[in-house]
Nucleic acid binder design. Structure first.
Lengths: 148, 148
DNA sequence: GCCAAAATCACCCAAAAGAATGACGACAAC
DNA sequence: GTTGTCGTCATTCTTTTGGGTGATTTTGGC
């Protein structure tokens, strides 16, 4: 960056010098002052733009780096796998709540059904997953991509 | 963006006009041409830098960097967190096996201890995690970074 | 309307899990 | 040598879970 600023100053100096040098040649020309001003303006404008881009271009890349980390997969319930295993939506729901550490009673309250119903659902889902315990069902559910 | 470019051109035009207008006043001055040139150069340089910054500042440089996190963490058991919670190694071991879906009996066999001992460990670990059920302990264990 | 799948609920019973308490030996720290 | 932690085990009792079976109701498709 320092190099670019120095370079910029240098070019400026050279231009000034060139300006002075050409002064004696083209000053006689009509409207040379306008051409002159335009030339200088254009040159410095280009240089300025270039410098501006350089000035922020590097910084920009650092900021960009933040994008990737939070990404990844938000996890979308594997509908296909669920159907492959013949697990019904209600059973799936039950399984999810089991995975959250809820008891049958709590699940029953949350789903507005009787505890017996929850038992039925869980039993069936265990069967379909090949699990003997709820903890195992959770473990298998994850392996099958049914649970996060 | 278009607005800025137009503005830029406008300012350029105004400067040229001003240049022409002042021409009749300061042309008589000695070295006015250098001052002039420098002034114009400085003005356009500043404008150029500003424009350059504006030009790239808002642009999202979508540099699609490779995503390290997904393939990244092999998961290292959080030793600190475990000790923070006052969970002993043996209790941790028990928790891990619980998370794998094993029953107390299976865990007992695997660890060569009695089932009662496993119960003691699990009870203690539940207590330390604030869990009431093993499924909940697993869930909390994950949240605490104790389990994968 | 009829059928099949899904969802619901009920009972019974056995197994597993969990809470509470007490106890004992090993071992490190002070 | 006392203290504290850890790991071990037992006993008793309550709660939760899970298996098995059957039944009723809803729902969606044909």
């Amino acid at each position: 960056m320092k190099r670019q600023i120095l370079l910029y100053g240098l070019i400026g100096g050279i231009l000034i010098a060139a300006l002075k040098w050409t002064e004696y040649r083209f000053l006689v020309m009509e409207h040379s002052i306008e051409i002159y001003g335009g030339l200088v303006a254009a040159t410095f404008a280009v240089l300025g733009i270039w410098l501006g881009i350089k000035l922020t271009g590097k910084q920009q890349r650092v900021v960009i780096k933040e994008i990737p980390p939070p990404a990844g997969e938000p996890f979308l319930p594997d509908q296909r796998k669920r159907e492959d295993l013949g697990i019904t939506p209600r059973e799936m729901e039950t399984l999810e709540l089991i995975a959250q550490g809820m008891s049958n009673r709590e699940i029953a309250e949350k789903l507005f059904v009787s505890e017996n119903t929850v038992k039925t659902h869980s039993s069936r889902v265990f069967d379909k997953l090949g699990a003997k315990r709820r903890t195992q069902a959770v473990q298998l559910g994850k392996e099958f991509g049914l649970l996060p």
